[in-house]
């Protein structure tokens, strides 16, 4: 491979392998904006992934797969909503249980089906629908960037569209404003007559559903093959929790943040070939331990957390009531 090809492939892979992060992050931002800290991203993505994949394969349709991952993950989100909103259970504990349960369910179903697990290549609509790139006219003709950013599968575009749509929804609509009010000060929002429980339920469900699509995407990226020891989500749910902070609770910044975190994720795999293709300028990459790339998203987020709290002038957009349950008679 020549230098241009290596570079193009590197950029292309940043997008392809990391857009699932964007789904997880956008879903979590919606939920956190309603004042709920949901640490179950990993588990919700796993549930969306496995049901989306199995149901999608059973009817051989990518669209059905996407819808199924959305609906099943959303349905799983109902558990979080019932427990934390109605039943006032602790959000941290409930969220962690969502992860334990969701990942456990992923393996349970996978192992249960072991013999009859659907092979992705046997389902032409899903296989081709996912692998075939949709080229955006004109933009995809730009050298390097065209192939890297404007020639992708449908789920990449869908992720970006959802992120932009959610940004508009949160910042430019009345309902979005109300939602943010709930996250900042539920008692005040309640006194305005906003139905807090309803808002929280809807946004927890929709946010979980979006995470589920991201999980489905990860499964398709791995060719839909079930291995007994590795969950498809592989810690991306936790990176998404970090990315929410890095993106400062903005779904627009989350797109950029996905590329930054994705850059490190991809370097971990491609540092060798980049160093080989550009021995003079990037030769040092092969000496950097891959674990550093894996740790960087978390290191950066920890630093962001520290600096943002030290520097009071530049306030973070973290919802003030994040993680606190709202019980009307205690306000």
């Amino acid at each position: 491979m020549n230098q241009l090809e290596v570079l193009t492939l590197f950029l292309f892979n940043i997008v392809v392998y990391n857009i699932p992060l964007l789904y997880g992050t956008v879903g979590e931002i919606i939920i956190e904006k309603s004042g709920s800290l949901n640490l179950g991203v990993e588990g919700i993505m796993a549930v969306g992934a496995i049901f989306g994949y199995l149901i999608g394969c059973s009817v051989n349709s990518l669209t059905v797969g996407i819808l199924a991952s959305f609906l099943c993950a959303g349905l799983f989100g109902v558990v979080f909503a019932v427990l934390t909103v109605t039943m006032q259970a602790n959000q941290n504990v409930t969220g962690l249980t969502m992860t334990t349960f969701g990942v456990g369910l992923f393996f349970f179903i996978g192992k249960g089906l072991s013999g009859s697990w659907p092979v992705m290549t046997a389902y032409s609509n899903i296989n081709d629908g996912f692998k075939n790139a949709l080229e955006i006219p004109l933009l995809s003709k730009i050298p390097i960037l065209g192939k890297a950013f404007f020639s992708h599968n449908i789920l990449v575009y869908l992720g970006v569209v959802i992120a932009v749509a959610v940004w508009i929804y949160l910042n430019k609509t009345k309902t979005g404003l109300r939602l943010r009010a709930i996250g900042e000060n539920p008692a005040a929002a309640d006194s305005l007559g906003i139905n807090i429980a309803l808002y929280k339920y809807i946004h927890i469900i929709v946010g979980s559903g979006i995470m589920g699509i991201g999980g489905y995407y990860m499964g398709l990226n791995l060719g839909g093959s079930f291995e007994g020891s590795n969950c498809w989500i592989n810690g991306y749910g936790w990176i998404a929790v970090a990315l929410v902070i890095f993106a400062n609770w903005s779904t627009a910044k989350a797109i950029l943040g996905t590329l930054v975190f994705g850059f490190f994720n991809t370097l971990q795999i491609y540092s060798g070939s980049l160093a080989y293709a550009f021995p003079k300028s990037l030769g040092f990459l092969s000496n950097v331990p891959p674990q550093l790339y894996q740790a960087l998203p978390f290191i950066i987020t920890a630093l962001v957390l520290i600096f943002a709290s030290v520097n009071k002038k530049k306030k973070m957009a973290q919802p003030a009531a994040l993680g606190l349950n709202y019980y009307r008679e205690e306000r």
């Binding site: 427990l83 259970a89 602790n90 249980t97 334990t100 349960f101 990942v103 456990g104 393996f107 192992k111």
Partner: peptide, 26 residues
């Protein structure tokens, strides 16, 4: 078919129900 992941799954289910029971206790 069963491995330690089933223990995780069962733990999750137990905790969901105990969290619900907490509600009826409080």
């Amino acid at each position: 078919i069963i491995d330690s992941n089933f223990a995780d799954l069962l733990q999750g289910i137990i905790l969901f129900f105990v969290l619900a029971a907490d509600f009826f206790i409080r």
